[in-house]
Every structure is written in structure tokens, then in C-alpha cells.
Design a protein around this nucleic acid. Sequence first.
DNA 1: GGGAGGACTGGCCACCCGGCCAGTTTCGCA
DNA 2: TGCGAAACTGGCCGGGTGGCCAGTCCTCCC
Lengths: 123, 123
Amino acid sequence: MSEDNAPEIVLSLEIDDPALADRLATLLGSVAGLRLAAPGETANASVVARDPRVMPEDIALTQRELDVLALMAEGASNKLIARQLNISVHTVKFHVGSLLDKLDATGRTDAVAHAARRGVIEL
Amino acid sequence: MSEDNAPEIVLSLEIDDPALADRLATLLGSVAGLRLAAPGETANASVVARDPRVMPEDIALTQRELDVLALMAEGASNKLIARQLNISVHTVKFHVGSLLDKLDATGRTDAVAHAARRGVIEL
DNA sequence: GGGAGGACTGGCCACCCGGCCAGTTTCGCA
DNA sequence: TGCGAAACTGGCCGGGTGGCCAGTCCTCCC
């Protein structure tokens, strides 16, 4: 950052809910030292709110499934996951199978992508 | 929506830059009708600002590699990608290999995760 | 025109992955 | 206190994946 007089913070909005977007825009627009980004403008930060109706809350994943999912997102193989969690490879595959089912994915790559999309995991 | 008296908007912060996070927290904390989420609390929206220094520009990927990468992120198998792009499975595997190398990934899942992290693709 | 580099294609093969089967344990709930 | 749902573990196997080899075509540059 090079300026020091009025380092205005530029915020962009990524809100699915139009009503919420409107309220936030009104609230944030009147805050001194902060303004909303113009379309296409590079912002310092984004306000993100995906449609909650798309995510019926966190999908019911067990702790073990979350463990496996996190390691999957790191690119770990089933063998590596098994060693990491001190369980058998077969068990890992069972959990992966459950994840594919619950996340409606066709493979581990798809599962990680889906999970990341709906915020179950953070990449 | 069921309540109508004080629909307070809860915001969570995901800011890498501590200074920016502090400024935003101060600014947003004094806005009526809006408050910051407590740790672990479910928020209506998140303010996201990832450290831009983490992304050293787009990695040099060929068009074909981008095609393959996009389909990989959809969970497509090599066979499916090959059919989609009208090329042979062997060629797909060649591109996947290049992708693994350029993205410093250990497998296709890791490659998609890495690409998503640095903004090469959008999930 | 000749060389260098990169994209693209193919065969081969060890290994990994996901889906099927079955079985045990654990827990909540009626 | 029994009953049922769900988590967890394991063997087996067809197909998918990634790494190795080599070879062709095209473009750019000397």
C-alpha cells in the first residue's frame, strides 16, 4: 500500500439473496472509510453469502468422514489416509464410498470439488 | 423469514491481512443492524480477503491443459474427458501428467485442489 | 533448410480406486 | 431390555489411473 491519507476499503458483494444483498449494500454504503466496488473493480475484500437454500445446513458427515475428506482434499491416497488415521485401507474406502454417496459425487476428485463448493471443507 | 423485529445480519471475517481485518472489524462493528459473528457462530455472510501475494500469477497452462483441468474438476474420468475433447485416453493422460507436474500435485484430486486454491479454476 | 522445442498420440504395466459381498460393535430409543 | 440404525472392518475384483517408453507433427527461430 502506498497511500496513507484515505485508504478507503473497497468491498465487493457476492450475495445470492437479493434482499440480503440490498440490506448489506445500504448498511455498508453509509460506512465512512469503506465503499462498495464498482462492477469489475478489484476489491480489498468480498462479502460472500451463498444461497442458504442450496445448502440445507452442513451435510450430515460423521467425524471420521470429515477426517477422510480433509485428507482427500490434500491429495492423500487411501493408503496414506489409512496410515494417518490408524485404520485399514478397506475402512478408508468404506468412508470414501459414503462420502461419494452423501456428496453425490462420481469419484474422490468430484467429492472434494462438491465439498469445497458447499463449504464443507476449505481448500 | 419468520422474524420481523430485529433481523440482525451476522457477518464473519476471513481476512488474511491482520491490519485489514482489524480495520474492517472496527468499521463493521459500529454499524447498526449488523454485527460480527462469534467464533464458530453461523453467519449470514462472510467477508473474504485472501492474501494476494500467495498467487504468483497464473501458471503457464496450455489451452488443452485448461480443457482437461476443467473437466477433471467436474469429476470426469480420463475416458470421459477423451470423448469430450475428441482425443485419445492416452493423450488425456499425457495432459494430466503435465498438469500434475506444473501444479506440483500428486494426483488428479490434488491437482484440482491446487488449481482451485490459486484461482486457476473456479469450483 | 535445418535444428530445437513443445503439443500431441500410442503401447505397456504396476498400482490405486470404487463397488460388491459379508460381518462385528456401538449407540440411541422405544 | 430388546431392537434397529449406523459406524466400522475386511476380502475380492473389474476397471481406472499414473509413470515409463517411443514416435509424429507443427511452429518458431537461427
